[in-house]
Design a binder for these strands. Structure first.
Length: 855
RNA sequence: GCCGGGGUGGCGGAAUUGGUAGACGCGCGAGACUUAAAAUCUCGUUCCUUCACCGGAGUAUGGGUUCGAUUCCCAUCCUCGGCACCA
């Protein structure tokens, strides 16, 4: 083919690659297995958008680079097609989710085929496939049997639009992560997974996990983007404080009870002038005196009806007096107990000690309701100290204790804090306790399109106090051989919004089950909630290698404990928006499986790369803005290679960038130019020395930067090389091939076509036995140091640090300081300055610069 | 409020451990080819001054360290992202 014609070559090589199994590693005999994984898409729209393509291309470029480096790269793809996003889309277009899934599946795979990724096509999975979700259900059942799944009635986040409950992680800014609807609090019974039991390990592994990468290099701590690890650390939110007991005073109706507060700032305990309980605190009712009954009841009612939004918007603190008092254990002071909704049940103990002098919220509350303000830390800054002393402001900071009994005079954050802690613990009214922000994972969804939670409930067994797991009467998990619990086809699948589940309308023969457990035999009814989509995706990477194995139906995972092992995932590439969702859940599930002895590693993704976001014309892509880029159009017009290369060029891969049609078009032109240039190579050509030099410098630089996924500069360097080439340099077919090999990860189709043509024209390639060797399995070029020209070096000549001239010197002289100085001195542009001023000093950096310091 | 990225030409973005700022690309300008346009090719393109050379300024702002700072330190401003009444 004479001219670059992407349409023709892309179709041809897509078929040939598939036929020749170029991207299908031998799963059971690979010598250097490399699991290159990208976050699988959820089909919740017409098709892939350019953001997906950006993610997948960058991941694929990495896989191709590793493949050329000799690794057996396994790059699977699938669809996260179960779940609320796909269901909502189906509702929107008015199709049944199962029907829409088939349509989406076909379309997504068609598009995924076009983008030129080296996918292992025979290892596809879809989370709604029964062969997949039977194992999702198995996982839930096993978690139940191991005491890691439980049911509880609690205030939960309810999305009125999606008509289901959500996990804490799926609430952003008080809004539903999917549909941005205001979330409301609602009391419901739901299933939870005990992720909190793993809080410490999830946190500690981030910095301390020991692992070895595919190159045999040892690492301590996850190799993850910093922002993602910080987000996880904050989300887990471990902090150590003190539980301090305040006894309820004798006059109170709750006399004899104790209220425990949790605080990190126990050194201010002598400054406590009141206590506040969260409205949901268990002792609120008991603490309320007869006179305060009406006021408190009204307040609780109001607090309960506040939405998240109202709580956010109206930050002014309100509260009411319970009528009761408690005794401050450190000094015997009697302090009033109030109820206020600025205290949250989920944090600490749901009860807070009020220290208005040293906490801004307490200060605000104290000013409003006129509590005493006692300074217990004195500050060096006189102005601040005076203001705090006069009750004009609060302050938190290092200082010395005052008004604090025997501790007065000591450091507030040093020895004094330590001593006070020891004393309180010794006295028996305080204990060290670690508090976490992380809550258990709420997994129930009152929706249709998901795996039914594989649980069966028997009223009869519950009455008798019998359950499969002690302490959870009435509940039995589906036996392994009865899985999957198939999601029945329902014509009426839409959520009701009243807290019931669409599966409540399933046929009786689906709902009624015979329980056949050693502990209990009899009738039961199925749980009708389905599980959260994020459970589907929390383990999918473990399933890919198992597909196509003879034992795929007997075991959820493949080659976890076998040789070669494809685990853990060598490179995981995806968006950072999953920091506290998918990436946390997947770690949790993997740790659980590790504890059960089913996988030999605790961390699924030791290396994670977070790609940036593609925007269009300076703004985030959205339908309402009308700036959504559909990759299909561009592939049709310019070919997948041009789109891929352009996407990788428009900015650093971890930062994303701005998509522009003009840049897209320019990249197409560049590839066409590359085509012409490579085609112009003649058989007997020898490579000019300066081109060879730059080629090998490019190989060296790109080998290092490809490994760091710095794609934009790699492409820039290839452009420079082509620019030099087009100045009329002579290039040998072998060196032209080396160039193509460097470009191959970005433009797989075009480089393959040129490589095959050159192979035929010049016979420069050793054919494999079956007659086809792809450029993508050819070796990444090696650097030949001897080709890099080092005869001369350019030395910068400065006067007072300002560049005045440069000189080209032979390399062997570049380290001769005295010679460099004398040469520089001869330069007319330098002499001018030397004559004008007084020379003070000369700095010579061998091989770099000569700098004259002149007064 | 706290934590984390960032602020470099008209634009997207380059610059090993402090050592020639602006690679590469877009856009723009001029030219070649063409009856003309498109496409393609060539040259130029940080700003100011200049016919040109030379020169001056310049990496958000102000200061500091240094022979030399986009890079290190201090302060300030702006911006994007995460978390947030976390006791």
């Amino acid at each position: 083919m004479k001219h670059y014609n992407p349409t023709a070559i892309e179709e041809k090589y897509r078929q040939l690659w598939e036929q020749e199994l170029v991207y299908t590693p031998d799963m059971s005999a690979a010598k250097k297995p490399y699991y290159n994984l990208m976050m699988f898409p959820y089909p919740s729209a017409e098709g892939l958008h350019v953001g997906n393509m950006y993610a997948f291309t960058g991941a694929d470029v990495h896989g191709r680079f590793r493949r050329q480096q000799g690794f057996d790269v396994f790059e699977p793809i699938g669809l996260d097609g179960f779940g609320i996003h796909s269901e909502n889309y189906a509702i929107k277009v008015g199709r049944h989710p199962a029907e829409q899934a088939q349509i989406s599946e076909e379309n997504f795979y068609r598009q995924l085929g076009m983008i030129g990724n080296g996918f292992a096509w025979d290892h596809r999975l879809e989370t709604y496939d029964q062969e997949y979700y039977r194992w999702t259900q198995w996982l839930f059942a096993e978690m139940f049997r191991h005491g890691l799944a439980y049911q509880a009635e609690a205030k939960v986040n309810w999305c009125p639009n999606c008509k289901t409950v959500l996990a804490d992680e799926q609430v952003e800014d008080g809004q539903c992560e999917r549909c941005k609807t205001e979330v409301v609090r609602r009391e419901m019974t739901s299933w939870y997974l005990k992720i909190t039991e793993y809080a410490d390990r999830l946190l500690d592994n981030i910095d301390h996990y020991e692992w070895t990468d595919a190159h045999g290099e040892k690492h301590v701590g996850l190799d993850w983007p910093k922002k993602v690890t910080i987000a996880q650390k904050n989300w887990i939110g471990r902090s150590t404080g003190l539980d301090i007991d305040f006894a309820v005073s004798d006059e109170s109706p709750a006399a004899g009870e104790t209220i425990t507060v949790w605080t990190k700032f126990w050194e201010t305990v002598f400054g406590v002038t009141y206590l506040v309980l969260a409205p949901e605190h268990e002792l609120v009712e008991k603490m309320t005196t007869a006179e305060q009954q009406a006021v408190v009841a009204e307040y609780l009612e109001k607090a309960q009806n506040k939405t998240e939004q109202e709580r956010k918007e109206n930050r002014e603190k309100t509260g009411v007096f319970t009528g009761s008092y408690v005794i401050n254990p450190v000094n015997g002071q009697k302090v009033p107990v109030w109820v206020a909704d600025y205290v949250l049940t989920d944090v600490g103990t749901g009860a807070v000690m009020g220290v208005p002098a040293h906490d801004s919220r307490d200060f605000e509350f104290a000013k409003k309701y006129d509590f005493e303000i006692i300074q217990v830390v004195a500050y060096e800054d006189a102005e601040i100290n005076a203001a705090v002393a006069q009750g004009e402001r609060s302050h938190e900071g290092e200082g010395s204790l005052v008004n604090s009994g025997d501790f007065s005079g000591q450091d507030a954050w040093g020895a004094g804090k330590q001593a006070m802690k020891d004393w309180m613990i010794e006295q028996g009214f305080a204990r060290i306790r670690t508090d976490y922000h992380l809550r258990d994972w709420l997994i129930s969804r009152q929706r249709y399109w998901g795996p039914p939670i594989p649980m069966v409930f028997s009223e009869e067994a519950a009455k008798q106090g019998i359950g499969e797991v002690d302490g959870i009467p009435g509940w039995f998990a589906a036996e392994n051989d009865s899985l999957p619990v198939v999601l029945p086809h329902l014509d009426e699948y839409k959520p009701e919004g009243d807290g019931t589940s669409p599966l409540d309308n399933a046929p009786e023969d689906w709902k009624k089950v015979q329980i056949n457990h050693p502990k209990f035999q009899g009738e039961g009814v199925r749980e009708t909630n389905v599980s959260d989509t994020f459970l589907d995706s929390a383990w999918y990477f473990l399933r890919y290698p198992a597909l196509n194995r003879a034992d795929a139906n007997e075991t959820p995972f493949g080659q976890v404990n076998e040789d070669p092992s494809w685990f853990p995932v060598d490179a995981y590439i995806g968006g950072a928006e999953h920091a506290v969702l998918h990436l946390l859940y997947a770690r949790f599930i993997t740790m659980v499986l590790y504890d059960w002895g089913l996988v030999p590693f605790e961390e699924p993704f030791p290396f994670l790369f977070g790609h940036g976001l593609i925007i269009k014309d300076g703004a985030k892509m959205s339908k309402s803005r009308g700036n959504v880029v559909n990759p299909d159009e561009y592939i049709q017009k310019y070919g997948a290679d041009a789109l891929r290369t352009y996407l990788m060029f428009l900015g650093p891969y971890d930062q994303g960038g701005d998509f522009r049609d003009s840049g897209m078009h320019a990249m197409y032109k560049w590839l066409a130019r590359v085509w012409e240039t490579v085609k112009s190579v003649s058989k007997d050509a020898k490579t000019d020395a300066d081109f060879a030099s730059q080629l090998h410098q490019t190989i060296a630089a790109n080998t290092s930067e490809m490994a760091q996924l710095k794609y934009n500069t790699c492409i820039a360097r290839l452009m420079e090389l082509v620019n030099l080439w087009r100045e009329g340099k002579s290039v040998s077919p072998e060196d032209a091939v080396a160039f193509l090999q460097l470009l191959a990860p970005f433009a797989p189709y075009m480089t393959e076509a040129l490589y095959q043509d050159m192979s035929a024209d010049f016979d420069i390639q050793t054919s494999s036995a079956d007659g086809f060797t792809s450029i993508h399995t050819s070796a990444w070029p090696a650097v030949d140091e001897s080709k890099i020209q080092t005869q001369s070096v350019v030395i910068a000549v400065q006067v007072n640090g300002k560049l005045r001239d440069t000189m080209t010197v032979p390399t062997e002289s570049a380290n001769d300081k005295a010679w460099l100085e004398s040469q520089a001195r001869e330069l007319p542009l330098v002499q001018k300055y030397l004559e004008e001023g007084t020379e003070r000093k000369v700095i010579v950096v061998p091989g770099k610069i000569v700098n004259f310091v002149v007064a």
